[in-house]
Design a protein around this nucleic acid. Structure first.
Length: 282
DNA sequence: CTCGTCCCCTGGGAGC
DNA sequence: TGCTCCCAGGGGACGA
């Protein structure tokens, strides 16, 4: 589910409520998500104040008082939900459903729940000093909204790669944070077909693609992300960028480019759908 | 190395 | 209503 704009939206929502709060208790309803949680997960979190909520690619990082940093990834269906102090989650069985896996009790009486039906997400802990070399983080590539995401940097990532540009952009070791939706949308804006070999893009196309990736991510963040199926922000608000998709999940629809007249096609490679306009993406 | 395939897991929607 | 099939925003383990 969540790609960079959704994770960034969640980060902002959590930061507002969590920074400065102390975790007073942790309830684990299972011992593993995609990865096992550390055996001392609850013990290392309890009594710790949350210093910040940060993001690296699609990972959320929660530096804590002391040496530890909690690392979270939402996978496809992961959500954080905040319960204000006056709320009683036990009053309604539906609210704290069977897919709520971890509950963090905070010092103001509020609670943070991690819910993840498919369990492709993860929660773990690392030492702050080991973060850069942590196996989950060390191979991540360029942060697409950082200043070093330049046409020259993207050109280096794509050089020599025969894989389709679609696959190259999804590879988190090159650029980190894009997923299926925003790759489709960025390629559309840059007029590049998803099946083009990555190394075949011209300098002009690469420059256009860098600008398109930045723009689509910033617009999506401004819209609060895209709400598909079960994605909601921490406060339950829905993002609305899905109404602005030009191609994603719009197979058969008219291409939105003025005067194009083509229709959006869906292609499957590597088991995932690509949506594009064969008329204006080459 | 790099690339494509398959798999992890559950739920929702379409079609019958 | 209920079944079956397909599909889904993620990433990682394989084998060629």
């Amino acid at each position: 589910m969540p790609e960079l704009p959704e994770v960034e939206t969640v980060r902002r929502g959590l930061a507002r409520h969590l920074v400065g709060r102390t975790i007073v208790g942790v309830t684990q309803r299972r011992t593993a998500l995609r990865l096992p949680m550390p055996l001392d997960f609850a013990a290392r979190l309890s009594g710790r104040r949350v210093l910040a909520v940060e993001r690296r690619a699609k990972y959320l990082l929660f530096p804590l008082e002391g040496e530890d940093v909690m690392i979270a990834h939402l996978g496809m269906s992961g959500r954080f939900h905040l319960w204000p102090p006056e709320a009683d989650p036990t009053a309604s069985g539906r609210e704290m459903g069977k897919h709520v896996h971890v509950i963090f009790d905070l010092d103001d009486g509020s609670r943070l729940a991690y819910e993840d039906a498919r369990r492709f997400g993860l929660l773990t802990l690392a030492r702050r000093s080991d973060l850069a070399e942590h196996p989950l983080l060390r191979d991540l590539g360029l942060e697409p909204l950082a200043p070093d995401f330049t046409p020259a940097a993207l050109a280096r990532v794509l050089a020599g790669r025969r894989a389709p540009i679609k696959a190259a952009l999804l590879d988190q070791r090159g650029i980190a944070g894009l997923g299926n939706i925003y790759v489709c949308e960025a390629l559309f804006r840059a007029h590049v077909a998803p099946h083009r070999p990555a190394a075949s893009l011209s300098s002009a196309e690469i420059a256009h693609l860098v600008a398109a990736i930045r723009a689509v991510l910033l617009e999506a963040i401004a819209a609060g992300g895209s709400s598909l199926r079960d994605y909601v922000q921490a406060d339950g608000e829905l993002g609305y960028f899905q109404h602005r998709f030009a191609v994603y999940d719009r197979a058969g629809a008219r291409c939105p480019t003025p005067g194009c007249g083509g229709s959006i096609r869906r292609l499957i490679h590597q088991g995932r759908s690509s949506f594009y306009c064969p008329q204006c993406q080459h």
